[in-house]
């Protein structure tokens, strides 16, 4: 195998992992944009999605497409419930109280999974059976193709939804100025619920793709992709939708390249190092908005 093929394969690996990070990062960023908080339980929604898919396929013996829809619905409802129970009562509380609650919610979800499913990893056979293809000597596995197609489609759909629909512009209005949005007749609470639902549905899809890659389900499985995606969201500029996409993909590629050509142990350190450097140069993140106000 020549160097070109090796680099291309690592690049594709990075794109695959990165686009999963991007899906998760979108949830962090959308929620931050609209509720001005970091939902640290977001990573654990991925884990719930993984168990939901597993239960859907085994205990409920649903056909695959139905099990996938079931997983997305479970996560969307969970996202709405988390917001209603934990964050909505703190709408006017200090951001520190919200932060601690979010961390608490994360522990709660992990503990519940631990009680219900125990810490023993559940082996999971990938639901993606597509054969890989070979282009110019570069192997592209089926899971990479599916992941890239699914994430690209979702990102295009989400971008269109946010920029072209009435509900999307209502979301942007609420994230800019809740009071003024209410004056337009926008139901702010419902818009926030909808944002949590969309973010969690994206996490569900990310979770499905993630366990197809790692093929094992544990109560803490959401922690690592969750924190990586959070880094990706900050890297791209938290609150920015394209920023989350760019941040996620960049992070995936940096991680995969570091693992392949520098050192597996140092890969995470390099990823966080990139974050530090970018924030030093541009504190609002790559595509973060500078808050300029005209008076």
């Amino acid at each position: 195998m020549n160097l070109f093929q090796s680099i291309m394969e690592q690049l594709l690996n990075g794109l695959r992992t990165g686009s999963i990070y991007a899906l998760i990062a979108l949830g962090y960023s959308m929620v931050y944009g609209i509720a001005k908080m970091i939902n640290f339980a977001h990573g654990d929604v991925i884990m719930v999605g993984a168990y939901a898919l597993f239960m859907g396929m085994t205990a409920l013996s649903l056909p695959l497409p139905v099990a996938i829809i079931f997983t997305i619905v479970v996560c969307a409802v969970l996202g709405i419930a988390i917001e209603k129970v934990a964050y909505k009562p703190l709408r006017n509380a200090s951001s520190l109280a919200v932060l601690i609650t979010a961390i608490g919610m994360s522990f709660l979800l992990q503990s519940l999974a631990l009680i219900i499913f125990s810490a023993t990893p559940i082996p999971f056979k990938s639901i993606i059976s597509m054969k890989g293809i070979k282009i110019a000597g570069v192997d592209i596995p089926g899971i990479t193709i599916i992941t890239l197609v699914v994430t690209t489609a979702i990102m295009v759909a989400l971008t269109l939804f946010i920029n072209k629909t009435k509900a999307g512009s209502a979301m942007r209005a609420v994230s800019e100025d809740r009071g003024a949005a209410a004056l337009m007749g926008i139901n702010v609470n419902r818009t926030i619920s909808m944002t949590f639902a969309i973010g969690s549905a994206l996490a569900a899809v990310a979770g499905i793709l993630y366990i197809c890659q790692y093929q094992s389900i544990t109560p803490t499985l959401g922690a690592l992709p969750g924190i990586k995606a959070f880094v990706a969201a900050v890297l791209g500029g938290i609150g920015s939708i394209p920023g989350a996409m760019v941040g996620g993909i960049l992070l995936g590629i940096v991680e995969s390249m570091s693992k392949a050509y520098i050192s597996t142990e140092l890969a995470d350190a390099i990823v966080f190092g990139v974050l530090v450097v970018i924030l030093l140069v541009k504190p609002s993140g790559l595509l973060g908005k500078l808050k300029a106000e005209k008076v």
């Binding site: 942007r172 100025d177 337009m184």
Partner: peptide, 29 residues
Amino acid sequence: HKIVTYGMAHVPEGRRVFANLSVYENLKL
């Protein structure tokens, strides 16, 4: 958010237009 449906509109102090939305999108909202 119900008030506007009764036929009452409010132009708030300091304008509070949606700065990152276009003029057209602001009007549509």
